[in-house]
Amino acid sequence: MNVEAFRIIEPVWVLIIGILISIIPYLTEKSIIFGVRVPTDKINSDTVRKMKKIYVSITFILTIILTVLTYLLSSYLLVITFFMPLFMVLVEFMVYLPEHYSLERIKRDEQWEFNASSVTGVFNVEDGKKFPWFFTLPGILVLVSLFVTGILDYKSIPERFATHYNASGIANAYSTKSIESVFILGFISIIITIMMILIAYVIARTPLKTDNASPHGTERVVIYQERMVYLTLLTPVFINSSLLIGSFGEWGIIKENVFLILIPVFLLIIFVIAISVKTGQLGSNIKIPESKGPENTIPDNSVSDNRNDDSLWKAGVIYWNKNDPRIMVPKRFGVGYTINFAHPAGKVILVLIIAIPVIIVISVLFLH
């Protein structure tokens, strides 16, 4: 892929991701505004609507600025690939945090009260509900294809082969042939696949939580959880495909092409954005047929839950609750799940999430 093509593609993706970040307040659980739990009668108040508009306006303006910067700095591949996404997340929280603390202060000063309709139901996963192991197969098949092809083609791989190319498609790093260097991307695929399956399994077994601010809260969260499990299980299909193409390029089976390697990643981003927008956090955007009626149906195995639980969330994004048996819980800002940092297993997952990328980078640098 030449530099000019890269300069066009990258800003487009920055713009798309930035727009998604700017509309997050409209994707979250209806009764959660900027990480703060609010009573149902305050959800559409003038204060809340104004804060949402301010957030959307500022993040959209910053997205335009970052898009232009991405275009101007696109010749610096490392900067754009690794630092721009981190910078975008940082910018998001620079806008989010003032809104969070402002709403938290308003809630405290005005002493917002929670009535009976603000009580939610927390209930266990349905007994006998089977984990969708079938959806693990596509990612595993791509992984197996990588190793089978590598084994069959191993003898024809040069003793010294290119392992990295710049944006212009010119090789700028090489490695000596060995089992480790040839299959390094395959080993990374194994780690990612196992991690995604474990996370999906934890999500599937996580107790559900209804949101009474949304009609049919129970039905919505059930559908939401299923979609999050499927999304997590299908993620390795895209990532492994990208690593498969990268391996084929290194082995000389196909001509190395940065754009071709990025196609599965771009498709994954589209997939995640589509599911996030269509679903919303805890299924808040899912359309339920009117024929089902307006009321929520909370299962018999539900328990009362304190809606005013802000103290358990640090800045509305870090969940810390030693008394909660859940390892992962739905995010308060965004779509998906986050870790219960007070749970022992949650701490293990956090260590793995941090350690695995570090190990991968060190391994790649050592072998290449």
Rank of each mutant, 00 (worst) to 15 (best):
A355G: 02
Y101D: 01
F135Q: 10
V277C: 08
I339W: 12
N115L: 14
L73K: 05
F259S: 07
E4M: 12
L137I: 15
T338K: 04
I359G: 07
I24P: 01
N257S: 03
P264Q: 09
L103E: 03
S145E: 00
V148N: 02
L267M: 13
R7C: 13
V79G: 10
V303M: 04
A345C: 15
I263T: 12
N308M: 15
Y224A: 04
S242M: 10
L72R: 02
R326C: 10
L146H: 03
V125L: 08
L152E: 13
V351E: 08
P357I: 15
I286R: 01
L20A: 10
A355T: 02
F135K: 05
V348L: 11
K53S: 09
Y154M: 03
V222R: 10
S102F: 14
P357E: 14
K278C: 13
N340D: 08
P11H: 09
L90V: 03
F271E: 14
I9C: 07
R332H: 12
F271T: 11
N212P: 06
D46N: 09
V237K: 03
F266P: 01
I245T: 05
G316L: 13
V119Y: 13
D127N: 03
N212F: 10
P330W: 09
S156L: 08
R49P: 15
H164A: 10
F60T: 02
E126Y: 07
T297S: 12
V89D: 01
Y76D: 12
E4G: 08
V142P: 00
I263Y: 14
K292I: 14
V144D: 00
I43Q: 02
I179D: 05
P207E: 09
N166M: 11
V12R: 02
K292T: 10
T176Y: 13
L262I: 08
F271Y: 15
I270Q: 04
W251V: 05
G283L: 11
V79N: 09
